[in-house]
């Protein structure tokens, strides 16, 4: 299986460690991974703003970059959600259909496709609060949703539970949105920042030293809120922990 690695723009520019950890982790698991150098964006920001036709160029480029791979893996739930569920600014050719069908968010790829049962190199002796982005939770369904009353399951928790030394904090409102919401974070900045602050406080009050998530965009926002308001909590991408980061 040849894997194409997609690294979203904000990870590329601000959180390269999450990207590096994703790549190294897949390599440790024996995967054949390539990162196409001409990649930019999946088109989500434009499409989510309603400007779907403006997403066409990005979507077309994405397909040109990734059509040749058996699987496309990305450390981002919302980008995966866009490609899988909303990627329709361009004609739905066979290449487009192939890309949409074979795009995976990292956690679901590890859990459902590779079915990884151990991360022997991983140890994280800290109490963490798990943040499921709304994209992973309610669109990709990598965990059970409180509104539906379904039996508990959590793919990210399953993976993290295989890490030595890790313990979990339980926030009061585990699946409330943190308020990032893409351009919402700018156009509705007051609400967005307040939601972010409430979110990081909830985790902090539950005793979390770290917030861990499969989505860096949520954490970029939460980190900004935590730092501004002096909430002492740190942030780490799930790929970094699974790849063996100790802190």
């Amino acid at each position: 299986m040849k894997i194409g690695l997609f690294i979203p723009c904000y990870i590329d520019a601000f959180y390269p460690n999450a990207g590096i950890a994703t790549l190294e982790l897949l390599e440790k698991l024996g995967q054949d991974v390539e990162y196409p150098m001409d990649q930019t964006c999946c088109g989500q920001p434009m499409a989510n703003s309603g400007c779907n036709s403006d997403a066409a160029a990005a979507e077309a480029l994405f397909v040109r970059n990734f059509a040749k791979y058996d699987a496309i893996v990305m450390p981002s739930g919302s980008c995966t959600h866009h490609v899988r569920d909303n990627f329709d600014a361009i004609p739905q050719t066979e290449d487009v259909k192939h890309v949409r069908k074979n795009t995976y968010e990292l956690v679901e790829f590890l859990h459902d496709i590779l079915k990884v049962d151990a991360f022997p190199w991983a140890e994280f002796p800290h109490k963490v609060g798990l943040h499921n982005s709304c994209g992973t939770l309610r669109a990709l369904r990598t965990a059970s949703m409180s509104e539906l009353g379904e039996p508990f399951f959590s793919k990210p928790m399953d993976l993290l539970s295989k890490v030595k030394g890790i313990t979990f904090a339980t926030p009061k409102r585990p699946d409330e949105c943190c308020g990032f919401g893409g351009t919402f974070s700018v156009t509705e900045e007051a609400i967005s920042a307040r939601m972010g602050l409430d979110k990081v406080r909830d985790h902090h009050n539950a005793g979390a030293e770290y917030i861990v998530s499969a989505d860096t965009s949520c954490m970029m926002h939460q980190q900004g809120c935590a730092e501004r308001n002096g909430v002492p909590i740190r942030f780490i991408h799930i790929a970094e922990i699974l790849n063996g980061a100790r802190a």
């Binding site: 590329d12 390269p16 150098m37 900045e189 007051a190 920042a193 972010g196 970029m220 926002h221």
Partner: peptide
């Protein structure tokens, strides 16, 4: 408005793209 109630992400030394070029290609 991002910065009104929030800090900006910290600058990094190297993008993933540049790291990949250096360490893999």
């Amino acid at each position: 408005p991002w910065g009104k109630h929030r800090e900006l992400p910290h600058p990094v030394k190297q993008t993933f793209h540049s790291w990949y070029k250096q360490n893999r290609l």
